[in-house]
Design a binder for these strands. Sequence first.
DNA 1: CTAACATAGATAGTGAAGGTATCCAATGAT
DNA 2: ATCATTGGATACCTTCACTATCTATGTTAG
Lengths: 208, 208
Amino acid sequence: MRMSELSRLSGVPVATIKYYLREGLLPAGRQLSATQAEYDEQHLRRLRLIRALIGVRGLSVSTTRELLGALSEYTGDTHRLLGLALGAIRLTEDTEQDVPELADVEALVTELDWNVHKAAPARATLAETLASLRTLGVPLDRHTLLPYARLAERTAVLDLDQLQGIEDPLEAAERALLLTVLLEPALMALRRMAQENESARRHAEAGD
Amino acid sequence: MRMSELSRLSGVPVATIKYYLREGLLPAGRQLSATQAEYDEQHLRRLRLIRALIGVRGLSVSTTRELLGALSEYTGDTHRLLGLALGAIRLTEDTEQDVPELADVEALVTELDWNVHKAAPARATLAETLASLRTLGVPLDRHTLLPYARLAERTAVLDLDQLQGIEDPLEAAERALLLTVLLEPALMALRRMAQENESARRHAEAGD
DNA sequence: CTAACATAGATAGTGAAGGTATCCAATGAT
DNA sequence: ATCATTGGATACCTTCACTATCTATGTTAG
């Protein structure tokens, strides 16, 4: 298919597709001549993935590029891909300064007996958030955090279960990305709804 | 204290503080004269909160303004405040178009027997994410989503527990905001670490 | 009292991010 | 042969979150 058809099928303007090509998010089409290139189903699929990561999850173009790079590089090695994908995303900008809470995180990981890479950015994200909360007068200690971590553990089991039994390695890789990254807004939405429900429950019990 | 001292104590540049005042994120100080105003501990506290919401959680200035507005308006009514706070945040931009997955969300909420407002933005966020996943070939049905929702339920219980036993209504309101909003990056970080751990566990079991 | 400096508030400018729009030469369809 | 379409290059635009400058007024040290 031509670029115009790719645009029509995906709903993404031609100018934007060109932009993604320039930025290296979308691989170039098969060159037919100096001014013609052909795109296929893979491109359409990739384009939809890009829109989901940027539009739904709110990732930046550069983060998306890293993620997609990991996807093509580690197709077939889901474990490695997962590591790369998890590492590529930063929820907070990294301040890169040593925050004292890193020790708390280390202690928590040890207590949980988790096998997590020493340099995992998630550690820094967690430490930074804890530091911020402490500054604001809400110090969360390990004791408080532990049950949250146990629930995260069970969430991760559900996540990994979803990846079982997929034979096509490309599909497995893509699904790993989608489930780890794109599911985040959904999980946060579930938590918000659950909070509203729980709040209503307690409010009704206590007062009128 | 003067603005310069507020700046020094918070680490936020004077120009930025003026910007937050203009944008209505920070209440004006007590006017001493035409060109002098005094700020107090409350302002410092508020300023730190603003930086955390914008810097750590990555909220936009306008979302932060809504949130802080809800905070001053509903101090003392934690249940109402929570509703406002949960509603003010949108993880995804709202497409506002009726996506078929809204029915699935409705069914899920019914099955869970949750008391969630019909117009809660979290419903739309969830529906939109599900729609996106379906388009990408990963249709998550209610059956798959249910265990995630159950875990969210238990997370919400932990969240609400944190708010128990705080007597000062302003402090309770602020903490509600912090725990619902600022804890999100921390929970996602925990999930990422748990995934890495779970992936390592299964990888080790299966292969070498 | 006065000179030097600080401050509040208004207005304008900056830089990054994420697109959009315009050109143009080379096709491909009619 | 003609004429709209395409790919590629380049320039432009808009939003966001600040940041800098300017001015009139205050404060303070000598």
